[in-house]
Structures are given as C-alpha cells and as structure tokens.
Amino acid sequence: SFCFQFIGSIELQIGRKLYFQDIGVSAVDECESPDGAGCSSSDSNEKIPLPRDIIDALMNYDLKLPYSTEFPLPSVIPCLGGCKEAYYCSKSCAEADWRLYHSLLCIGNGSSTSNIEALLKFTEHANETNDIFICAAKAISFTILSYRKLKAAFLEQKEKSDAPNLQKHNLPLLVDAWKPMSMGFKRKWWDCIALPADVDFCDEAEFRTQVKDLALVSLQLLKDAIYDNECAPLFSLEIYGHIIGMFELNNLDLVVASPVEDYFLYINDLPSSQKEEAERITKPFLNALGDDYAISCQGTAFFPLQGCINHSCIPNAKAFKRDEVYMLLIFQITISYIDEDVPYKERQELLADYGFICKCPRCLEEEPQLS
C-alpha cells in the first residue's frame, strides 16, 4: 500500500503474527522491537503456543477480542488481478498500484504478463537469493507501463495531426517514462554492494563476479516473464545492474508501528476491573506472542526526491512519511545515510559503500590530523 498502513483488524494482525510464529518465521528477524516498558506476558522469554484453530479463527474473523473496535483498521482490498499476494487499504490504492506496476508483475488470472510461470520462477529466485530483484522488477514494470501510456497518447495525437513516425521516436518516449527513476544515484550493483564480513579482501573480485552472475540469472528470468521489445534497453545487464545499485544506494528504512502493540498497551492501561475482565481473553494471546507483540513492521523504500538529498553526519533533516510537509529552504537539506552516532572511523567505513569520503563539518572537525 502507498499509505503504509496495517489493514484488516486487530484480530487479523494478531492472527498473522501467531501464524508466522507457528510456521517458524520469526518476526524478530524481519522487524524491530522498541526498547522500554510495555506489557508483560507470563514469561517474555518463553512463548505459550495456541492451538491452530484459534489462530485460524482470528484470521477468519470468527473470533472477536474485547476493545478491538477501539483500533479500527482499513478493510482488506485484494489485488485487482486476483493474485492473493498483494492487498491494499483502499480501492484507490489497489487501482494506483495496478496502474503503476503491479499489472505486469501480478501472478493472478487478470495479470497483464504473458508468462505467469516465468514470473513465478523469477519471484521464487528473488525470494531465495535477494529480494532487491523485486524492487528492480517494479522499477522496470513501472517504466514499461509508463512508456505504453505515453505511446498511446502519442498515437492518439498522431491521428489528429501529422506527427512524426513513432518508430523514430520510441526511445525519447522511453526516456520520458524513465524520468522518475532517473533521479536516484546509480552504480552497478556488483560494484557498489558492500563486501560481507566473511569475505576476505583477496576474494573480492570473485565475490563481485558471483554477484554479477546472480543478477544475470535474475534478469533472464525477468525477461522471460515481462520482456517488451520496444523497451529492450531496460533489459540489458548494464541497466539492470544500475537499477539494483540505485536501490542499494538510495533506499530508506521504513518502519510502521504495529497497532497490535497499541492494543495490548490499551488493555494494560484499563481500569483494574475492566482490565481483569479483558485479560481473561487477551492474556493467552499476549503469552503466545511474547515480546513479538511489540514488533513493528520494518522494510525499505525508495523515494526519488530523498534519493537526491546529500549526506551529512550532522543532518538537518530526517525522512518521514507525512501527508503534507512545508519547509522554508534556507540551507541545503541533508540526511544521514548511516548511523551518525558512531565514531568517525566507523562512519567513514560505512560510507565507503556509497563511494565517497564524507567531508561534512563534523567529519572535518573529527578527522585525525597528520603530524
């Protein structure tokens, strides 16, 4: 969803957390839990599992928890193509996502792709290796669909006038379609990806070759699924590498607080008599979740405008999602690409992945002086 919202109901969200626990997927690996005081289960280090039929009842809206209506969530809107992989908070979000890129990447019966089997193979490969390939596929899908829209408008205009032959002008249309993605700083993925701690420097060349080969496999699978001859430049390994590198270098952390935590805190703060009555029902669910009740949803996102903002170890801005933001621009806006609270040497090591040496006022002040 473009709105970054939890959807469905408190019951559904608790049920999903318990379901993923039940199948062995830990929310702790994917999300983050805030420090500080909160609710306490019977033993925060030992979860007490619930029967699967109880979990199913939560997810199927067959079980209602007390005071859950105090936390209304948007209704679940399924994908327009029926893929059962994408869900939205509103029809407008579903339609916008479909129009912008999902119609080409949907694996449902209503998909615009000509080869769903190939798309499934691409998605499976991305999930098993690196889901950054999914981001790259969305960028390419967005560009193809934008190109087709521009082409349709061009042909419509051509019918009304003596417009030039489209065959000679499809590349400018493709460039126009690519413009929203062109803002992000790009380097080929295999050149800019950070060297893992367990890879020795003497093996760096081999590692980067393996990463390039991995991208080539992913690209071929994507070509089999959504290739468009008129957008052929998008499917070169060089361009694919730059698209993935763009996400590698420009992504922002995205954290959405879970309403499940708010719900249990609400129960915890009820007057004693109401709390005792409510906890007869809610306590088993809190005990089953353990500390996972406070886990927020964490991911990454790419915003073209933020991708143009320079780094500083003393940033004067932070990236937030707001409906409207008004700013008086007096100085250059900067954000921090890294944790700016670490020492100078560690900051420079982290920023090496971005291909520059930071010379912000703080780094100049803390830079070791040669005697």
Score class of each variant (00 low, 15 high):
Phe4Thr: 07
Phe6Ala: 03
Ile10Pro: 01
Glu11Leu: 10
Glu11Asn: 09
Leu12Trp: 05
Lys17Tyr: 07
Ile23Lys: 06
Cys31Thr: 15
Pro34Tyr: 12
Pro34Phe: 09
Asp35Ile: 00
Asp35Cys: 04
Ala37Glu: 12
Ala37Leu: 09
Gly38Ala: 06
Ser41His: 02
Ser42Pro: 00
Glu46Leu: 09
Lys47Trp: 02
Pro49Gln: 07
Leu50Arg: 08
Arg52Gly: 10
Asp53Cys: 11
Met59Gln: 08
Met59Asn: 08
Asp62Ala: 14
Asp62Ser: 12
Leu65Trp: 07
Leu73Asn: 04
Gly81Trp: 04
Cys83Thr: 06
Ala86Trp: 05
Tyr87Gln: 02
Tyr87Cys: 03
Tyr88Arg: 06
Cys89Lys: 01
Glu95Thr: 05
Ala96Thr: 13
Trp98His: 13
Ser111Phe: 03
Ser114Leu: 08
Ala118Met: 02
Ala118Val: 04
Lys121Gly: 09
Lys121His: 12
His125Asp: 04
Ile134Gln: 00
Ile144Glu: 00
Ile144His: 00
Leu145Ala: 09
Arg148Ile: 10
Ala153His: 00
Lys160Glu: 08
Lys160Cys: 09
Ser161Met: 14
Asn170Gly: 01
Leu173Gly: 03
Ser182Phe: 03
Phe185Cys: 04
Lys188Cys: 06
Ile193Phe: 13
Asp198Met: 01
Val199Gln: 03
Asp200Tyr: 03
Phe201Asp: 03
Cys202Ala: 08
Cys202Met: 07
Cys202Trp: 05
Asp203His: 02
Asp203Thr: 01
Phe207Ser: 04
Gln210Cys: 05
Ala215Glu: 09
Leu216Cys: 09
Val217Cys: 08
Val217Gln: 08
Val217Lys: 08
Leu219Glu: 10
Leu221Met: 08
Asp228Ser: 10
Asp228Tyr: 09
Asn229Ala: 13
Glu230Ser: 09
Cys231Phe: 05
Pro233Tyr: 04
Leu237Ile: 09
Ile239Asp: 12
Ile239Glu: 14
Tyr240Ser: 04
His242Leu: 10
His242Met: 10
Gly245Met: 05
Phe247Cys: 03
Glu248Cys: 03
Asn251His: 15
Leu252Thr: 06
Asp253Glu: 13
Val256Leu: 02
Val260Met: 07
Glu261Asn: 12
Tyr263Lys: 02
Leu265Ile: 04
Leu270Val: 07
Ser272His: 14
Glu277Asp: 11
Thr282Trp: 10
Thr282Gly: 07
Lys283Pro: 07
Phe285Val: 14
Cys297Asp: 12
Gly299Phe: 05
Ala301Met: 11
Gln306Asn: 11
Cys308Phe: 15
His311Glu: 10
Pro315Asn: 11
Ala317Pro: 02
Lys318Ala: 15
Ala319Glu: 01
Phe320Thr: 08
Phe320Gln: 10
Phe320Cys: 15
Val325Phe: 03
Leu328Cys: 12
Phe331Asn: 13
Ile333Met: 12
Asp339Arg: 06
Val342Pro: 01
Pro343Ile: 02
Lys345Pro: 00
Glu346Val: 01
Glu349Ser: 11
Leu350Ser: 05
Leu350Asn: 00
Gly355Trp: 14
Cys358Val: 15
Cys360Asp: 02
Arg362Phe: 06
Arg362Ser: 15
Cys363Thr: 13
Glu366Thr: 06
Pro368Trp: 15
Pro368Tyr: 15
Ser371Glu: 08
